[in-house]
C-alpha cells in the first residue's frame, strides 16, 4: 500500500518542485512556440539562405540528445540548472515544433497563397492573415504532442540540479531512503500537468474543427 505520509511530510518540497516544473515548462512552451514559428517560416520563405539556415537549425538541434544541449548551457555557459534546463528545453522543442508547423503550412493549398498575393498582399501579410490561421488547425494535434513531451522532458532539469519536480523527488528519496512511493507521487504530479494539457488540446481540436 502506498505510504501517503511520504507525500504529506514532504509536501512543501513536492510543491516547490511542482511550481518550478510548471514555470520552466510554461516559459519553454511559449518561447519554443515563438521560436518554432520563426524557424518554420525560415524554412518555407522564398529566400534560399534562410531555408538553409532553418534546415541546419532543425537538423542539428533535433538530432542531438536533449541532455547534451542541457550540459552545453550548464557546463559550457555555466548557467544555473534552472536556466540551462529551460533554455535547452526551449531550443530542443522548438526544432520539433518548427517541423510540425512547417508541415501544417505546407498542407494549406497553394492556391490560398496565390489568391492572397494576387490581391496585392505582401508575403508576410498573406502568411499572417491567410496561411497561418488555416495551418493552426492542422497543427494543433502534433503541437499538443510536443507540449506534453516538453512537460515530461523538463525532468532533465534534475540532472543539472534544476530544482524541478524530479530533482525534489530525488532529494526526498535520498533523505527518506524510499524509492517506489516517492516517485509514484512525482509521477502523479506530472499527470496533474499533462492530462489537462492533453484534454485541452483535444477540446481545442474539436472547437477549431467546428468553425471549418
Amino acid at each position: 500500500m502506498l505510504d501517503f505520509s511520504i507525500l504529506t511530510e514532504n509536501l512543501d518540497m513536492y510543491l516547490l518542485g511542482f511550481k518550478n516544473t510548471i514555470m520552466s515548462s510554461l516559459i519553454a512552451l511559449v518561447a519554443s512556440l515563438i521560436l518554432g514559428v520563426f524557424v518554420a517560416i525560415m524554412r518555407i520563405a522564398p529566400i534560399k539562405p534562410l531555408n538553409w539556415l532553418g534546415t541546419a537549425y532543425v537538423e542539428f538541434i533535433r538530432n542531438i540528445p536533449l541532455l547534451i544541449i542541457t550540459f552545453f548551457f550548464f557546463l559550457g555557459l555555466k548557467l544555473s540548472g534552472l536556466y540551462a534546463g529551460t533554455l535547452a528545453l526551449t531550443i530542443y522543442t522548438s526544432s520539433f515544433i518548427a517541423e510540425a508547423i512547417r508541415a501544417g503550412i505546407l498542407s494549406v493549398p497553394k492556391g490560398q497563397m496565390e489568391a492572397a498575393r494576387s490581391s496585392g498582399l505582401t508575403y508576410g501579410q498573406a502568411m499572417r492573415l491567410v496561411i497561418l490561421p488555416q495551418a493552426v488547425k492542422i497543427v494543433i494535434p502534433p503541437l499538443g504532442n510536443q507540449f506534453i513531451n516538453l512537460v515530461k522532458n523538463s525532468s532533465i532539469l534534475a540532472v543539472v540540479a534544476g530544482l524541478d519536480l524530479m530533482y525534489h523527488g530525488d532529494l526526498i528519496s535520498s533523505r527518506t531512503f524510499v524509492v517506489f512511493d516517492v516517485y509514484i507521487f512525482v509521477a502523479a504530479f506530472y499527470l496533474i500537468l499533462t492530462i489537462p494539457l492533453s484534454l485541452g488540446v483535444g477540446y481545442l481540436e474539436k472547437r477549431l474543427a467546428k468553425s471549418n
Partner: peptide, 18 residues
Amino acid sequence: KLRRNIGMVFQHFHLYPH
C-alpha cells in the same frame, strides 16, 4: 502595387475558408 490593379479569379475559387 501592380497586383492591386489586376484582379484574378481562379478555377478553384481559392476563397479563404476561415
